[in-house]
Design a protein around this nucleic acid. Structure first.
Lengths: 189, 189, 189, 189
DNA sequence: AATGAATGAGACTTCATTCAT
DNA sequence: AATGAATGAAGTCTCATTCAT
């Protein structure tokens, strides 16, 4: 029933770091919210920085099962499903995602995690496009499309904080899929 | 001619904020680097936060003269020139650009500036596409393309810190231009 | 028309000192309220402390014309009139009166002024009692009565800030007058 | 037995506040006098203001056992004994008493304490008068007498700093008692 | 005479971290 | 294993005062 004290500390740190930033969050408030004595935070995580590292190490894997996503011949639908699946994954800890970008260049562990996550998303998009679109698509275009969409996806889960407005990514997604989907229509050059 | 003390303080703050972050930069170190007594920093900028606001208010305008950029009928080239021009503008203070994203959600003044800059870039991309491509392009696609490219451009001047590697934006740019450039080839829907 | 700058500084200092205390009032705010540049305050009053001394030196005289107050044979009415006259005098700068007690033991000039004012009030009460009551009253009782009433009067114009409630001093006044007023009832000695 | 650090901090603060005033006393000097590191002061009392509040909360009770004071039929002697007992009580921390009036209107906690103490003293005087004088005394006079004497008593323990001179309160006390004691005829004494 | 930029000492406060228990 | 008292370095900010003009 009860989460372990260590777990509660991590959860409290995640919320507070995401909300106010790493520097602005005192360890004492983490202890307070976790309902543990102040000393325990440093007992488990010697330095405050270690808490952040532990949080990053717990990041959920953002890899999606492609077989459940790819619709052969339909890049647009495939991408839509992929993005939906990624959303579900990344939304498991939206606060943490948000935190990542903020502290990305102060702490190398965080920066590495941000890059790894971005690369992973881009790679998945690329694979899904290829799986759905077949070999007909120029690899260069696939990479460009993946880079753009990965940026858009990552952005939604970090800086944007899921702005309340309608989700505009569908528009971009359709545009990219359409661009990729009619290779025959493109002039030789 | 010596720069004024106020100017030196702003310059020092810009460098240090961009380098180590707002929170991690003591006002004393700003004074030290600016070569002014500690008190002068607070004489000009009552609170540390005001220094950040002043920095944001000094942001260079990122608006480009479209007549120098648009090549009628050639979206790709037009976009390439626009991005080059934007780069020149935004590179005037790369550190500041970098700082923006980092402090975007702690300080509302910064967040507003980030959004305004993004919106401005997106609007320019859209206008250039329309001017170069004529009315043949579907407005919906233009908006999607502008959103994606604006993100990529903004990203380069902020988080990415102009990663050392080759500039990958040309690839994305060509892809988008190509997608927009052959409207006639696309199926009715 | 215009009050002189020096005068405006004094007036501003009086209000602010009385309101927030001497220590808690920055000279810059005095300048601000007086509508003068910050440097002018120290131009006229070298040290902040000198401003306080100047304020004390301006204290209105609290001496009342006894001929307008004494009603022969009626101590109670005489005291009532005296207190009313003193009130009018001291109320000329209620804020300053209030300030006096507060800073009384930090600045000797203020302490001396407080004592002088108290002694002056006590002496007047004594004189009025004697003038109204004739020689029938025991001098020892007169002094005791004067000491008690002077305290009550001074207190009203300082710490109490004229509490909104009904003025209770009339009660004390009547009591004292009555005690002094029936000498015939008291054994000869 | 060493006093606890917290106790030493309170004692040091009491002395320094009473001596130089609240505003003029840096927490660093409190720490210095208490022989503790500067941080410990704020560890126990988050804000400097809390130190003052803690001091006020420690105020000794000024309530006296009336049975040991009242001499039936002799108001003067009863009051004399009451004042002596109150003196003993309030003298337990003369410095604190002195501090009270000074900071009374800057800090509400202090103002409340001052009023409560005054009201308590006045109520005790009233009760003792009634107990000693019987029902013969007019209630209105009792209240006036209590108000005057309470002011005199409070004043001695605060602003006056027990002026070195002879204690003049006996005179006032005798005057009041005499006024109350012989309304109809006033015995020879 | 008047100004306001400039100074620097020092105040309050926060907080990560240590350590005895 | 766990605790929370204790530490002291460092941070932001205030302000009386000086001084060149």
């Amino acid at each position: 029933m009860e989460d372990s004290a260590k777990e509660r500390i991590l959860a409290a740190a995640e919320e507070l770091f995401a909300d106010g930033g790493f520097d602005a969050t005192p360890t004492s408030r983490i202890a307070e919210r976790a309902g543990v004595p102040k000393g325990l935070v440093h007992y488990y995580f010697n330095r405050k920085q270690d808490l952040l590292a532990a949080l990053v190490a717990r990041l959920p894997d953002s890899t999606v099962d492609h077989r459940r996503v790819v619709v052969a011949g339909d890049i647009a639908e495939s991408l839509r499903r992929l993005v939906a699946a990624l959303d579900a994954r990344l939304n498991a800890s939206p606060l943490l995602s948000h935190l990542l970008w903020r502290e990305a260049d102060t702490h190398s562990a965080v920066r590495d995690a941000v890059r790894a996550r971005y690369d992973n998303v881009a790679a998945q998009i690329k694979q899904v496009i290829l799986a759905a679109g077949g070999a007909a698509v120029a690899i260069k275009d696939v990479e460009a499309a993946a880079a753009l969409l990965a940026l858009a996806v990552s952005y939604r889960h970090s800086v944007a904080r899921h702005s309340d407005e309608d989700d505009p990514i569908d528009r971009e997604l359709a545009f990219v899929a359409s661009a990729l989907g009619q290779p025959q229509a493109r002039p030789a050059r």
